[in-house]
Design a protein around this nucleic acid. Structure first.
Lengths: 105, 105
DNA sequence: TGTTCATATTGATATTCTTCGATATCAAAC
DNA sequence: GTTTGATATCGAAGAATATCAATATGAACA
């Protein structure tokens, strides 16, 4: 089974590729169909499909089929969840017992 | 030269490994020395050094040398910057001209 | 100065990821 | 039903990453 660290890592891994960041940026101005995204990026069709799958599975993006076309948009919930996650993992806890290192340093 | 997409991708790439997420979690409760982190993870010393380098270079972690020991802690500024970045790239823009796809779909 | 100990770097290997071309699926239109 | 067009999946190649063992560096201390 996958632990929570791996699951969280997967969320950020979705953002760790420049092509996927470009796709997300395109979606900031609204829903886009796959062919339009493909036209703006310098990648092949199967590569785009792969990236869209990662973005959808990580929750950042939602997809909708309309006939033979696929439309993609940013998921408000998914993006919020990622922000909450980032906030959670980077918050310094206050009751912070400096206890000293058990290895003596 | 590296474009901003690559630079941003690098930030999230730092969070895309479960060992690094575990390290960050340890640092949430305060500064830790390398040997202590090493004792809690199931990785070799050179591997830890590699991960710490990535965490420091991405801005999430600050380091401080004290004699032969290295101490690591979460960087408030670095974490804030990452949160701002995530917020920026996932915000849906309002003046959102749905214009229709130029490819006819 | 030489030894010891903690950490960093190097070089090698296994794994994972990105990308592509080819093919499969799926929906519309004929 | 067959064809056409859009997207998904498959299989392979190359690049990037995680990891380790070995070695180098750097700091304290004898």
């Amino acid at each position: 089974m996958e632990n929570s660290y791996e699951a969280n890592a997967k969320v950020f891994k979705a953002l760790s590729d420049s092509n996927r960041l470009m796709i997300i940026e395109m979606l900031q101005s609204g829903e886009r169909c796959a062919c339009e995204i493909l036209g703006d990026l310098n990648i092949g069709q199967s590569t785009l499909s792969h990236h869209m799958k990662i973005l959808c599975e990580s929750g950042f993006v939602e997809c909708r089929r309309e006939g033979k076309w696929m439309y993609y948009s940013l998921s408000k919930e998914g993006c919020e969840a990622a922000k909450k996650l980032l906030d959670k993992i980077t918050t310094v806890k206050e009751n912070n017992q400096k206890g000293g290192c058990k290895y003596g340093c």
